[in-house]
Design a protein around this nucleic acid. Structure first.
Length: 116
DNA sequence: CGTTTGACGGTCC
DNA sequence: CGGACCGCCAAAC
């Protein structure tokens, strides 16, 4: 077993990663919805955490997270500006003009789905 | 420990 | 319909 002397505290970012990883394929979520599901922080904090997700120890499908308008606002933070769109299209999500088509239909509410 | 930042959201006009 | 503006609040410096 790994000697993890450094125990990770439950940071706000880790909470975000946990939810984003729970986003089912073919669905998208929003920063505000995730922040709302956490009950703490704001939409900006979610985006901030996403930026660090690259250096996080776990994989986070950040391409499934868009803003409330369904726009791929975070596409510039990927390897290539078109990387996010291609990833979404690969999941059967139509993108047009950097906007998720039928966004409302593909929207995945963490506060609702995680509600058991 | 004060300041800056930031992949947002909502309101205002 | 879209640009401008403020508020949120945690993490980085």
């Amino acid at each position: 077993m790994q000697d993890k002397n450094k125990e990770k505290q439950s940071s706000f970012q880790d909470e975000v990663y946990a939810i984003v990883r729970e986003i089912p394929k073919g669905r998208v979520s929003t920063y505000g919805a995730i922040a709302n599901a956490l009950g703490t922080g704001t939409a900006r904090m979610v985006g901030y955490a996403m930026n660090k997700s690259v250096q996080a120890d776990i994989y986070v499908p950040a391409h499934r997270v868009v803003n409330r308008k369904g726009e791929l606002t975070g596409r510039h933070h990927f390897s290539t500006p078109t990387r996010m769109q291609e990833l979404l299209e690969a999941e059967n999500i139509s993108i047009q003009k950097d906007c998720v088509q039928d966004f409302k239909d593909k929207f995945w509410n963490p506060a609702l789905e995680l509600l058991d």
